[in-house]
């Protein structure tokens, strides 16, 4: 399969990108690791691709206030390789290293992954557990949305027409914080069947369990970990999950809790 004909622009500033996106049929291209195949399969038939990878501010990664700013075009590989500051006691690098395959990580970006909004992707679950914000730029200025609310459904986000995900802001974990991340795939590099992510940060008074790779946005459970509360959340928020989905989501959450040290074996 080959894509339909489309125009291609590579703006050098966020303002230019936003202006280009105001036209009908325009789509953002970042690392292209999801959009590329969709173009080839003609599932996406845009009139214009706006390549944002040459916008300098989207490539930045720096400490900002009590947290870390990651521009949307920072790649998974840069996070995996420690080329960005670490405010998460190693969580970001661990998760990045488990995304798909190295070839995908070399080009795929944190912003592209969030904006593509595949529920099975890692960042939406990981960053929801860390309490990160999505920073959105648009014609009418900038706004912030918690990553846990950024997905409005499978492959649907809070982004309005003409808006770009600028990046994410991730709060710094205290030194005593612990985390657990357990992803279950049928094979290495495959899309997740289920993801469990647990954060415990006593100094900030946070215990949070996130169930990812659901059929929509991740399920976030704030407060002390408990098997029963996980099961109850799956029942109430799991939508059309069948017995298999319920089981693997429960087990990955449980194992993440054990890794984070909030549940004993």
């Amino acid at each position: 399969m080959k894509p339909v004909a489309f125009d291609y622009e590579r703006p050098a500033s966020l303002e230019d990108a936003i202006a280009l996106l105001s036209g009908a049929g325009a789509r953002v291209l970042a690392g292209g690791q999801s959009l590329g195949p969709m173009l080839n399969l003609r599932l996406a038939q845009p009139e214009l691709l706006v390549d944002i990878t040459y916008i300098p501010e989207l490539k930045t990664a720096e400490r900002q206030g009590d947290g870390l700013w990651l521009g949307a075009c920072v790649t998974h590989a840069e996070i995996e390789d420690g080329a960005v500051p670490d405010v998460t006691n190693g969580a970001l690098a661990f998760v990045a290293g488990g995304i798909a395959y190295r070839a995908v990580r070399n080009r795929g970006t944190v912003g592209g992954s969030l904006a593509h909004a595949d529920p099975a992707a890692d960042w939406v679950t990981c960053l929801s557990a860390l309490g990160a914000d999505a920073v959105i730029a648009g014609p009418s200025g900038e706004r912030r949305v918690p990553v846990s609310e950024f997905l409005s459904g499978a492959f649907e986000t809070a982004l309005e027409v003409g808006e770009i995900l600028r990046g994410v802001w991730i709060p710094t974990l205290s030194s005593a914080a612990s985390w657990g991340y357990y992803k279950f795939c049928r094979k290495a590099g495959d899309f997740a069947e289920a993801i469990g992510a647990v954060l415990q940060d006593p100094e900030r008074g946070i215990v949070r369990t996130v169930l990812g790779a659901t059929n929509a946005r991740p399920i976030v459970i704030d407060g002390a970990y408990g098997d029963e509360s996980v099961r109850a959340s799956i029942d109430s928020q799991g939508g059309d999950m069948d017995a298999y989905d319920r089981q693997v989501h429960f087990v990955t959450a449980k194992r993440a809790a054990m890794i984070a040290g909030v549940r004993v074996a």
């Binding site: 399969l41 049928r186 094979k187 290495a188 590099g189």
Partner: peptide
């Protein structure tokens, strides 16, 4: 299944 994301082939790890 119409892509290799749906049709799983074993890889080096498997």
């Amino acid at each position: 299944a119409s892509t290799l994301a749906d049709y799983l082939l074993p890889g080096p790890v498997e």
